[in-house]
Amino acid sequence: MFGPFRPTAINYGGLLWKTPWKLSPTRKANQRKRLKRVDAVIETVRQSGVECTALDEALRLPKEHEMPARDKYTVFSAKAVGYRKGIHKVPKWTRMTLRTNPRGF
């Protein structure tokens, strides 16, 4: 049970990376900050008075204060139990737009 050759997950599987199943309060605060920064970019472009399809699409996205916590910190996943998984499981999640859900979810 003890000693250098004890049966641990690392000894059996080799490399073990542990990803927490949910975000910590700090990571959630950082996520909110990022969302607000993107909102500011969209708002600035809107204020410039330019009209384009990209802006219409961006304005259709919910703003940070309109989003429920469920959408801020989790995403839809077809494979996950309950169809939701932590947003931090998505590769490059801090630099992607993951605000909306598929219809019905």
Partner: peptide, 8 residues
């Protein structure tokens, strides 16, 4: 504007 919004 479109380019900015792509990399927002």
């Amino acid at each position: 504007a479109g380019k900015i919004l792509r990399v927002k």
